[in-house]
Design a protein around this nucleic acid. Structure first.
Length: 238
DNA sequence: ATCCAGGCGTTAT
DNA sequence: ATAACGCATGGA
């Protein structure tokens, strides 16, 4: 099942694969939820094929900023407003009045901050957005508005660079399973995945998306453990 | 009404 | 180093 998501694995036999708990969790989540199809770019407004990659890339970066500590549903509304105004375009974002921009992205929360940061990020990444050249992680981290999760999201989803994205769901999951002890720093969590998995962009993409799905549906603050496949397979002790 | 969502930066201990 | 706080909307 889902063979196309497993091609990166290089194990000679099932036994070796079973010893890798990180990989086991991935396969179980994939089995339970199916492929998630991230990043969910909605735009179909490309004037010509040449700009398609650039616009996709930029929409993902904008989404990564807007979704910080905010439900994706609220971000979609904001993105659709930007689309209607033809603002999934770095040059045009730089020109629009910040207050006007803030109003368009209101539904995504923290809209004054995010309008400001959207412009700063866009300005600083203009070259990378346009060329598709991959920025360095450290270079992203010094931009105001980009922390570790957003940096890695941009690298993975906008630039297809194989780095594992960690979020609140990921840490909560690792702590509950007992693979990482509280508070489970960003780097600790990231290392756990990256040292136990082949460095494969498609795998990291799907795995993070599956963890988010799992965190939303079952492994919530108040978890629904009775329905959880990780509990059933005795991977999670809760 | 209260709580939470695909965090981050600043300021206080 | 780590904790607490502000930023803010919309859905459950």
């Amino acid at each position: 099942m889902y063979k196309e998501f497993k091609i990166a694995f290089n194990y000679k036999n099932q036994k070796d694969e079973d010893k890798n708990i990180i990989l086991k969790i991935y396969n179980l989540l994939l089995e339970q939820y199916g492929p998630q199809g991230w990043w969910p770019v909605k735009g179909k407004y490309f004037p010509d094929e040449k700009n398609r990659d650039e616009e996709n890339r930029y929409e993902i970066i904008v989404g990564a900023i807007l979704t910080q500590n905010t439900a994706w549903k609220n971000v979609e509304k904001a993105l659709s407003n930007l689309r209607e105004e033809g603002l999934i375009d770095p040059d045009r974002i730089m020109k629009i009045d910040t207050n006007k921009l803030a109003e368009l992205i209101r539904s995504s929360g923290y809209y004054n901050q995010k309008a400001l940061r959207l412009k700063e990020v866009t300005e600083n990444l203009l070259f990378y957005i346009k060329t598709g050249k991959i920025p360095k992680r450290e270079e992203l981290l010094i931009i105001r508005g980009i922390g570790p999760e957003t940096a890695d999201s941009i690298l993975l989803y906008a630039f297809h660079y194989p780095i594992f994205v960690v979020d609140a769901y990921t840490r909560r999951l690792l702590i509950r399973i007992g693979l990482c002890k509280f508070p489970c720093s960003y780097d600790d969590a990231q290392n756990l995945f990256m040292s136990n998995l082949p460095r494969d962009e498609k795998l990291f993409n799907e795995y993070h998306a599956l963890i988010v799905k799992h965190g939303k549906d079952l492994c919530k603050k108040n978890p629904l453990c009775s329905k959880c496949i990780l509990k059933k397979k005795s991977i999670c002790p809760k």
